[in-house]
Design a protein around this nucleic acid. Sequence first.
DNA 1: CGCATCGTTGATCAAGCTCAAGCCGCGTGG
DNA 2: CCACGCGGCTTGAGCTTGATCAACGATGCG
Lengths: 245, 245
Amino acid sequence: MTPTPDSDLQLLTQAALFDGLTETQLRTIQQHAALVKVPRRSFFFHQGEAATTFYLIREGQVRLSQVNPEGKQVIIHLFGPGDVLAVIVVLSNAPYPLSAEAITDCVAWAWSRETAVHLMEQCPRLAINGMEMVARRFQELQNRYRELSTERVEQRVARALIRLIQQRNGSQEQKPYPLLSLTRQDLAEMTGTTLYTVSRICSSWEQQGLLEAGREQLHVHNLEELSNIADDLRPSAANFPPKPE
Amino acid sequence: MTPTPDSDLQLLTQAALFDGLTETQLRTIQQHAALVKVPRRSFFFHQGEAATTFYLIREGQVRLSQVNPEGKQVIIHLFGPGDVLAVIVVLSNAPYPLSAEAITDCVAWAWSRETAVHLMEQCPRLAINGMEMVARRFQELQNRYRELSTERVEQRVARALIRLIQQRNGSQEQKPYPLLSLTRQDLAEMTGTTLYTVSRICSSWEQQGLLEAGREQLHVHNLEELSNIADDLRPSAANFPPKPE
DNA sequence: CGCATCGTTGATCAAGCTCAAGCCGCGTGG
DNA sequence: CCACGCGGCTTGAGCTTGATCAACGATGCG
């Protein structure tokens, strides 16, 4: 960990977490921050470790995942710049309930548990902002939970892609959709299915011209049709009933 | 809504949400609270309504559920006395993402959105406590999400029962396990399966002597064996392979 | 070049969903 | 007091989805 250089104040100001804070407050917060670098494939923290630190991502992509006792992995969320890591858990004095792995090289600000609690007590606005970010994540998780229990695999994969695109775009709609880089395995772990099924679905979509599929990448062409699939505006059937026609 | 009588201060003090607050603070909070009664089968709020109020349950049982576009319902959580309702959402200025229905007659304290934010700004400890409660719920939801995507139905139903029992007991282990009153349908909506499958599982368990099943009630006798099932210490098979023996 | 990682595809199969039929117990109104 | 209906529950038969297993193809890296 290295102390944050002064120039970082700028960047900090932009983070949603610090919305509405005075410059003095920001400066205090910054003084207590450490800058950490986490290279691709290493971990911010592991499931089960004591939660000592919370992070605000400056650069890079992070995968939050949980493994069950049998070793099966489930991806809870992917994060990018501006997102916060372990806000909630740092306040509840419990071990990290999941692991955070850098899927690209990352840079992040870090605060210790005590510092964070202290800052929030002095500066309630910070706690409220944190809560808002948690609220959004909570709701997304609830939605995904509902989807997982009521929708079929194909819909869920479609939704996962749509979410990833929206996350990358940061709301502004743009036609040449961004290129998503993830493995079929990742997509499977995000949607609660298997690598094989995802592969079949992608192949089928590629044949229908909805996207181009490559090694560790997917390029969506037709987002509208994908939304239709997500909303089940077609009575199922990717290619499963291998119609005699 | 009626103003809360003075005697309520006692009860308020005990709530985990108000842990560590001074008496003065508690008094202020109480002065801003309204007491609401919600009869069985009515709603605290509906999915999609603007989030104007947050609640602390004093008496009764509440079911938090979401319906998907096709009308399928999913039960996110059951609440009892001491639990808070809509903490998070009230801070994020968004509509309620789900509905809260009283499954027994309920009494609750209520605060308006503005009051809540104001109180938290004046009294950060309150925000932090709220966050801790949210953290716990968040983690539970994550676990259930993982279970839903990696475990089989029988395990999930077993877990649901175990959770319900623990929630009723409030941690202290006691041998004559409480009687759970819920329909097979409820249990199905909690575990992401169908009424029929739950019914079959319960029948099978009853034959094995793990519980007694009745109309709208289940009485668990053998919690240990149920835990084994939850942890999959048996290679599946409730009665599905209708063994010729 | 060879190995590792990622992906595809076919064949098979089981978990659990759906549909259909019927039972039981309770509350209500005639 | 009885009949009826409704809500909850059970059970069987059949079928679909998607998991699993196996084999192989493609891509890239040391």
